[in-house]
Design a protein around this nucleic acid. Structure first.
Lengths: 110, 110
DNA sequence: TTTATTCATTGCAATATTACGATTAATATA
DNA sequence: TATATTAATCGTAATATTGCAATGAATAAA
């Protein structure tokens, strides 16, 4: 039914999957990398940089903003975006804990 | 059109997004956490553990296997799954590099 | 005030994902 | 051999995602 049964999972599992999902598209990865590289950036610059249409970029920015990973600031007719540092660090803590699960103690089955 | 334009992005960006995408569903997060916890596990045990139907779990396992994050070993009529350690560590390197982009030098725009 | 610029929103088409019943394939056991 | 067990695959319905043209909203500049 195309719909994840989130009620079957822990809050942490759902949180991890939500963060991961937003990184699950190369355009959003590229947007974030560009924001890290140049600190802050207007939407229009991202459109030229990434190469997708303006409404598409705007939609990806909306998802990143909705998760709190970026901030947007209106400056005249343009909107300046940047990384939301505190939230990025908080996200990193959650994801790193997941990625760092200890693999050394485990015995292979195969 | 529901299809990511991967040709517009770098190999690294596509790689990051593919790894992230597979973590973008709580069932796959739960499967991986369970495999870390108990080292190795039959498909049927994961079905009881997670609570989704057997074909659904089988499908999620297929995706994890396709990305190389788990291994499956046939043991009689059951199949034993475990984390693919080397590939997990390699994935972790890629994802950690992405997550650890330096945020401290950046100036906020807002 | 008019026009230009920039970005968000809407609406839609194409494709992908999620979930599961039914079935199949493979092996173990009686 | 016949039956049971386990897991993969197939087929399909429901929903989500991606991408963009068209449009709208807001501000700046002429």
């Amino acid at each position: 039914m195309g719909l994840a049964k989130t009620e079957m999972f822990t809050d942490k599992q759902n949180e991890i999957s939500l963060f991961a999902k937003v990184f699950g598209h190369p355009a959003r990865v590229a947007i974030l990398q560009h924001l890290f590289k140049i600190s802050s950036c207007a939407c229009g610059d991202l459109v030229s940089e990434i190469g997708l249409a303006q409404p598409t970029i705007s939609q990806h920015l909306k998802e990143l903003k909705h998760l709190g990973l970026i901030k947007g600031n209106v400056e005249g007719t343009s909107v300046c975006y940047c990384i939301h540092k505190e939230n990025w660090i908080a996200m990193k803590t959650v994801m790193t804990e997941f990625l760092n699960q200890d693999v050394s103690e485990n015995q292979d089955c195969c």
